[in-house]
Design a protein around this nucleic acid. Structure first.
Lengths: 203, 203
DNA sequence: CCAGACTGATTGATATGTCAATCTATTTTT
DNA sequence: AAAAATAGATTGACATATCAATCAGTCTGG
């Protein structure tokens, strides 16, 4: 199956340009030029700039949801699930850096994406993660004195911070860095950052 | 003597419009209308839309840096410093929700802000926080087997996640929620999310 | 021969930044 | 104290540029 399908070429070009210049500063002419096709052909396949962008983002959400659903119903050890979630982001960044970059810079918190539909996507994302956290509490692995959505925020926030640093610095992930990142997030999220002997006074 | 000059009125109006519509979708005409001044007056005080935006963002960075420098040199207990950093974000959100919203949606990760100068601002932000973390390790409060910038990412990532949820949901912070959020972040960041009896197998 | 792939010039809407003119307040001159 | 001069605030129409989207037409494989 040869991949000289112009439609795919246009999507790939759009991924690059959207990452380089951001949605607002991307010209349809830029995408056509980078794809090596005429201006009009982009509109032949995608009715508007917004639709083209949505096609890309929708693909991201699909993968993310699928991964979270898989982890939710899998019967791996709980800690393994958390590791897999982190791994997903790091692997995806290695494999499709443009896609992750767009998610971080144009979707994750950008006002551009704050429609009702955009918000719903986020709620699903958080809700699926919260299911996993709630399960961790249920099986007695995670502490119950902190609400599952709090755990979700902290866990996802930490992951996003790492990915953001990579995206903004256009850094690469090798095997060793991936291990160290997963280990760091897991260690701190599960065991905490303070030395164990150190007691925590009440707030 | 009420300080009611038009310049401030324009900045306040810009804060509102930038938050509501995002930088890209904000028209200078919108700002003028919301401020109740003529279109031209905005340009009388601010030479361009970008300059107006920068004035706002610069003010944010100034406050943030000041707070971090204060905490770095203060001699409070280490945990208190972390609490104060979280508190800063929550108080600022309560006091200037528009400013925090713009930071999250238009600055924090938005490609709009990814100039060399923008990146430098972030490096300073992270670096100041890292100083605090390194001190926590030095005084023996934080574990040393995880690099200080890792601790920084996780800590700031968690805070940003909480603020983002408030911003996107336009939620309010009352005293009780503030306490609970600080407690949640501190508890998990310092002591971890797993139940204490649960041993952590090696990765 | 025709359906769908493909082209790129053209259009039309939109928004930035300019500018000449007017108004208002303060200071200077007579 | 009135008049004149000056500086700065304020106005909104407009010139200009920028793009998204359209469209009339050409090419090509089956």
């Amino acid at each position: 199956m040869v991949k000289n399908n112009k439609q795919e070429i246009i999507v790939d070009a759009a991924l690059e340009v959207f990452r380089d210049k951001g949605y607002a500063n991307t010209r349809m002419a830029d995408i056509a030029r980078r794809a090596g096709v005429s201006y009009g052909l982009v509109y032949h396949y995608f009715e508007s700039k917004e639709v083209l962008f949505d096609v890309i983002v929708e693909g991201w959400w699909d993968r993310l949801y699928q991964m979270l659903k898989d982890e939710r119903q899998s019967d791996s050890a709980f800690q393994k699930k958390l590791e897999n979630i982190i791994k997903f982001f790091l692997d995806m960044y290695a494999e499709k850096p443009n896609l992750l970059s767009i998610f971080i810079t144009e979707v994750s918190r950008s006002s551009v994406y704050h429609t009702a539909r955009g918000l719903a996507k986020f709620r699903t994302f958080f809700s699926l993660t919260e299911d996993v956290m709630a399960e961790g509490q249920k099986v007695g692995f995670l502490r119950r004195d902190i609400g599952p959505h709090y755990l979700t925020y902290i866990f996802l926030g930490a992951i996003e911070a790492f990915i953001s640093v990579m995206v903004l610095g256009k850094e690469a992930v090798n095997r060793e860095r991936k291990e160290r990142t997963i280990n760091g997030v897991i260690q701190v999220f599960l065991c905490g950052a303070k030395v164990e002997s150190n007691p925590l006074p009440a707030l």
